[in-house]
Amino acid sequence: METPKISRRGLLGASPVVAVSAKAASAQTPEAAAPALPDAPVRRRVVLKVNGESRELDLDTRTTLLDALREHLHLAGTKKGCDQGQCGACTVHLDGERVLSCLTLAAQAEGREVVTIEGLARGGKLHPMQQAFIDNDAFQCGYCTPGQIMSAVACVQEGHARTDHEIREYMSGNLCRCAAYPNIVAAINQAKSQMGRA
């Protein structure tokens, strides 16, 4: 029997363009998109630009950016911690701004630049924020960490990391149940100067 588990590396190395079915292709105009049955899913072809790569997907309109990343593109670094906009674990950058991918439809991200934790390190070199999280032990279980780091990078870029107090306030949308908070503040303080020099 064929093993149903697929290799992550193999998957990530696969062609980024997913075959688009005729059914989905025909569902592009608003008229054609109306469901045949009242309860039938509405499909939509969505081109997502994730970490610099364009990926074409045939999705249910209900699919969130989070589920598109995790279930369709197998970019599982972005985490689901509540699926209702309360924890920040799913934070990604959309056109450079930090947003919650669980409350963003994949369709809303069409044509916009999505950056996830997998896209932060460049050429095998960690982003200064990633290195700072290591240096300051700014995580324990690691589950909220991708969201924390994406949020922290944006926090610095927004100019909201001027004081410890400001960092704490602007990082409060990212829950850490292990409560590594003081170390996260220390990490942001370390990274912000390096990011400034970059």
Binding site: A76, K79, L120
Partner: peptide, 25 residues
């Protein structure tokens, strides 16, 4: 010393339970 799995955790690599890539679930 820094955590054994630190680099993995800051780059989004660890596979938590719901992260396993499964074909056609």
């Amino acid at each position: 010393i820094p955590r054994y799995e630190a680099t993995a955790k800051v780059t989004g690599q660890p596979l938590y339970a719901a992260d396993e890539p499964i074909a056609r679930p």
